[in-house]
Structure formats: structure tokens, C-alpha cells
């Protein structure tokens, strides 16, 4: 049973209050999608000039460039830029590690719902999919998947669209092959690496038994300053590798500290260029 903080109504209320202040920073890329307000790859009916071509029978006479005809006596057609609403694929890592803590799980649900909300505001056809799984609704998110490298969803990813990967990036294996498959064909790729505050900055709490929430493995660990420092070093290397991989292939990477949505947007997503003020 979901806790009160992860109830769909609670999540929706918080997203509704915050998401309107921001929008996805999609930039000037060309996208593919349905009719919308973003530049597409082809010819459309926007106000922005795109190119000329010779008149062909059947062309709309309204687009004949009469000035060029006056100079050259040849009928030419003015072509305008296509404007589309991009496809947005929100890819959620549903492994159990996203629910290692209740705060982390709640933050994941908030971000997933907020991404869908921002996509809708763009007029895009948004789709929420689990990594290695099928399309689902935000309310149907269940973080109980197995550990392993990232896999594409069952439904093929739409080329030329925006892809937002929501994950904690804590894969024991090399994620590069899987990530590249996710990034291939995307016009814009965002990797939101969501981590719990304790995962980012663990405290020296003495001896304790750590339980891996994905594999169930247990390990007795002495959490002292030296151990924490070693962990943070390894975590930082892991974050850097993922960042380099994403940025190196044209994507955007943001480390998000699990928190309330307003804090995550203002503190992490806005400076990272994932969002921009609406």
C-alpha cells in the first residue's frame, strides 16, 4: 500500500502547483512530431521561411513568390518551416533501487509526473515507459524491477523526439551500451540521475548492516569517516562516467537530490539546463 506521500492525488497536487513555473529547455533543435510550435525537420506552414522551389502543378498559389516572378518570369514557390510538437518519451528506471527510501521513491514519482506535465504543456505526445518494460501511466509506476543494465522499452522509441531518462544510475554493470541505444535517434536527451540525500552524502553512523534493496544481499559495514570517504569517491567516479557518457553523446545530465519538487526544479534541474522558466 502506498504511503500518503506517494498517493497519486498528492503527487498530482504537488506537480500541478509547481510544474507551471517551468518548461523543458528543448532549445532550437529540430524535432519530429505532430503539429506544434517547435521546428520540425520538414516543410510546414509556419511563418518562418525555409526555401524556394519551382512551381509545380497543384501548388497553392498563395505561396508563389511574385517578386521573383517579376524579376525572372519563372514561377517559384516559397517554402516555410514545419512546426511540430515533439514526441516526448519519459523513460523511468523501475528497478527497486528507486524506492530504496520513501523520499527517493516519492521524488521519482514527482519527476515522472512533472515530465509528463511539461510535455503536455508543449502539446507533445508524451509517453511514459519503464526501462525494459511497456508503456504505462504515471499512477502505475511500481519500483520493483530487477537490477541490471538499462534496456529500451518494449515499444520502439520514436525518432526525433525528446527522451527523458529518470534513473539513479547505480548500475553495477557498464551502462554505456544500453544508454547509447536509448539515446540513438533522440533529438534531445535528458538524463535525470535521482539520488537520495544519504546516497549522496552518507554519514559516519558506525557499524550497520546494509541491505541491497534489489538483490537482497547484506553486508556488515563499519560506517566511519574513512569508509564514507571511499564510498563518496566511488560514487563520484560513477557520476562522472555517466555524465561524460551522456554529454559526450549530445545529451544533458543532471544529478537530482531527492526532495520536494520545487527544490528539485530550482536547485538541480534549472541550473543543469533541463528546465527553463515558463
Amino acid at each position: 500500500m502506498a504511503s500518503p506521500d506517494t498517493q497519486p492525488e498528492t503527487i498530482a497536487a504537488e506537480v500541478a502547483g509547481i510544474a507551471g513555473r517551468y518548461r523543458l529547455a528543448l532549445g532550437a533543435q529540430r524535432f519530429r512530431g505532430r503539429m506544434g510550435g517547435r521546428r520540425g525537420h520538414g516543410v510546414g506552414s509556419s511563418m518562418e521561411f525555409f526555401d524556394f522551389r519551382d512551381y509545380a502543378l497543384g501548388d497553392d498559389l498563395r505561396y508563389i513568390d511574385w517578386r521573383s516572378y517579376a524579376r525572372t518570369e519563372q514561377l517559384r514557390i516559397r517554402l516555410h518551416q514545419e512546426e511540430v510538437a515533439p514526441y516526448v518519451d519519459v523513460l523511468v528506471d523501475t528497478s527497486a533501487s528507486l524506492s530504496a527510501t520513501s523520499g527517493k521513491e516519492r521524488a521519482a514519482r514527482l519527476l515522472a509526473a512533472a515530465c509528463l506535465q511539461w510535455a503536455k504543456r508543449e502539446g507533445a505526445m508524451a509517453r511514459l515507459s519503464a526501462l525494459g518494460g511497456s508503456e504505462l501511466l504515471a499512477e502505475q509506476l511500481v519500483f520493483d524491477g530487477p537490477a541490471g543494465a538499462p534496456l529500451p522499452p518494449v515499444a520502439p522509441l520514436r525518432p526525433g523526439g525528446v527522451r527523458i531518462l529518470l534513473t539513479d544510475g547505480l548500475w553495477p554493470e557498464d551502462p554505456a551500451p544500453g544508454l547509447l541505444r536509448l539515446m540513438t535517434g533522440a533529438a534531445r536527451f535528458f538524463c535525470l540521475q535521482l539520488l537520495d540525500p544519504w546516497e549522496l552524502e552518507p554519514t559516519a553512523e558506525g557499524a550497520m548492516t546494509l541491505v541491497d534493496c534489489e538483490t537482497g544481499q547484506r553486508a556488515e559495514v563499519q560506517l566511519d569517516a574513512r569508509a564514507v570517504a571511499a564510498y563518496r569517491g566511488r560514487l563520484q567516479r560513477l557520476l562522472d562516467e555517466l555524465r561524460l557518457l551522456v554529454i559526450g553523446h549530445g545529451g544533458d545530465h543532471a544529478v537530482v537530490r531527492a526532495d520536494i519538487l520545487a527544490s528539485m526544479c530550482a536547485r538541480d534541474l534549472l541550473p543543469a539546463g533541463v528546465l527553463e522558466p515558463a
Binding site: 533501487s97 528507486l98 530504496a100 527510501t101 527517493k104 539513479d168 547505480l170 553495477p172 537520495d196 546516497e199 553512523e205 557499524a207 550497520m208 548492516t209 546494509l210 541491505v211 541491497d212 534493496c213 534489489e214 538483490t215 544481499q217 547484506r218 553486508a219 556488515e220 560514487l235
Partner: peptide, 9 residues
């Protein structure tokens, strides 16, 4: 010992 669930053992 006290137990703590974590994501990356």
C-alpha cells in the same frame, strides 16, 4: 547491527 536498505551495495 542496525539495518539500512540501500540502492548500491
Amino acid at each position: 547491527l542496525r539495518e539500512r536498505p540501500i540502492a548500491a551495495l
